[in-house]
Amino acid sequence: MEQRHFDRELLELKEKLLLMAAKVEQLIKQSVEALIKKDAALAQSLFALDKEVDKLEIDIEEDAIALIARHQPAAGDLRFLIGAIKINNDLERISDHGVNIAQSAIRLAAQPDLKPLIDIPRMAEFSIGMLKDSLDSFVNNDPDKARAVCRSDDKVDDLKDQIFRELLTYMMEKQDSIGRAMDLILVSRNLERVADLSTNISEEEIYISEAKIVKHNVQKGK
């Protein structure tokens, strides 16, 4: 049978979601890059990228709702559309966290370094890796890869705690470090949220592929 119109529309939706994912991944990467290189102009340029992501989010949501209304999808198609709506939402949130990091980067670029950045780039590498893997798992319908992402979330949480403890000592030592330390804590908090949302994307991939609801450490479905 020739490819149905509905299948083409599902594919188009997936392509739009991947386009959005690529923009979000770029945004997070560059926000961290701007932070590390103290590149305020790069950080500034990311706000426009976030606007593009916001526009795509609305576009994808409208398309998905229209497909559900017009085709009454079932089984795998239904799970894909529900998953796509949620991933769409997660990606938009990740983009917002990138914007938050960019804002911290702009503030920090104007001030002397508090300390050499070691753990934050590591944490960023981890979080961005989780985002990339979660998106790959979605693209390739690979629930095993998605499960691996869910398992790696603890590592990022540990790094965040470690960064917090270290920055606390700076703040206790020198009062004028508080503003910069707070910004770095916010960056780590934003990176931790990126990892959490990547875990959500992975959970949605598992739902799409296997109809299993795996979240809050609860597993439902067969």
């Binding site: 049978m1 149905r4 999808p73 079932a74 089984a75 795998g76 198609d77 239904l78 109809a211 067969k222």
Partner: peptide, 16 residues
């Protein structure tokens, strides 16, 4: 209608 166990069922209810 959300998670049929047989591929034949999935093909039918999704119009394939």
């Amino acid at each position: 209608f959300t998670n049929p166990s047989q591929k034949l069922t999935e093909d039918y209810i999704t119009g394939r």
